[in-house]
Design a protein around this nucleic acid. Sequence first.
DNA 1: AACGTAAGTCGTCAATTGACGACTTAGACG
DNA 2: CGTCTAAGTCGTCAATTGACGACTTACGTT
Lengths: 227, 227
Amino acid sequence: MRARSAAIAGRVGHGVAVDATASAGKRLTREARRAQILEQAAAYFAEYGLTAHTRGLADACGISQRLLYRIFPTKAALLEEVYRTAILGAFRHEWLPPLRDRSVPVQARLCRFYEAYHAGVLTRSWMRLFLYASLAEADMAPNYIGDIVSGLLDVLVEEVAHEQGIVLPADKPFLDEVAWTLHGAVSHLAIRRHLYGASRQLPVAEVVELHVTAFVDGFRGMVGTRR
Amino acid sequence: MRARSAAIAGRVGHGVAVDATASAGKRLTREARRAQILEQAAAYFAEYGLTAHTRGLADACGISQRLLYRIFPTKAALLEEVYRTAILGAFRHEWLPPLRDRSVPVQARLCRFYEAYHAGVLTRSWMRLFLYASLAEADMAPNYIGDIVSGLLDVLVEEVAHEQGIVLPADKPFLDEVAWTLHGAVSHLAIRRHLYGASRQLPVAEVVELHVTAFVDGFRGMVGTRR
DNA sequence: AACGTAAGTCGTCAATTGACGACTTAGACG
DNA sequence: CGTCTAAGTCGTCAATTGACGACTTACGTT
């Protein structure tokens, strides 16, 4: 039984079209084929879950299933590489310097950053893959949270506190939670839109601004509860 | 390949202990057995995903796989029933009247409601099952959102607006988004805690209060952006 | 043009899968 | 205590699975 559709309805599903990027039967170098497979695999596993089958993926790539195993030793190794490229690789580190550019009001910086983050990271494919990975393996999501989000949370509170002349308490778990207020709000917006099919009436930029404004305006009050 | 652990590590996993509720070989009525299976199935599918196998579930129940198929016609039918009982059935409608009791400050009402909601609905098992279902089937999550959350969002804005003497604009999508600010915050807290292993330093009640306070205090400002 | 190498495929295997026909047995009732 | 019904199990089937040994062929190099 497949993860998607078939789960409840019992349908066979997976009408994935053959990859159009590599036009008919063209022979690729190992590296080019590897890159093409990884791209297709990210989309395929995002759609049907990490339990999706290698034959279906091979079809989607327009290659034989055997070739998959000539390039990746096991399905687990392929999945690990998909996680590294598609999940960890989506974050653009060049987004960080503008986020710290104090010549611009923090409100504007946050809006711009989270619009880019929503468009570049929180896509349907990324979100589904990230959730499938988080559900399946205890080590994957913590990697992203630990490697990327954690540092981001620090920047958020530092920048807002600086602009508002607030001296932050030393309570790290509390400050993380305050920062999650904004980061979680935008993340959950993506979950609603891509997973629940909700929150699709308003433009993303408008909702992001709503959350950023609430965060900036409420920041002093939040931090004030811990003195 | 199994959904959990095995997805990346390749382990076989599922060290689910045999159900202890029905002590050794005791014969149950059809309804009692059905209830026992549903309870076990919710935990089992929450852990290993909707693609988990019926043999593993039968082991967890302490019964033969064949008996599963004497009580539920197909795996899909079993899953549908699990969704109805474990996902839709978790919400207690008796939480709503206290939420509307205007003799109590709205801040306190919201705190109490979301503490109960987090403890009763947003459990690890519920959260995982809900996400697996949302990822697999486009019809399930919308059911919960449509049947339960949607009405809740209305209550949230109505109650806060009333206490603060605010006349709400007619813009329904916008008001929904304002309400999601709080509902999403608590939901994402549960996702962080149960899925990402984050946000576990502070007590839940404290974080819930942080979000409720931010919501109540920032409500006028939020709604004010739409006049 | 011949050739060698790496890209690519065919066919298959053992282990699982959901599903179910045929059978066994506990235990309520007279 | 016998009997009958519904609870429960055994064994199996066809369809999939991940994985891979053996083979074929495109194409850069000389």
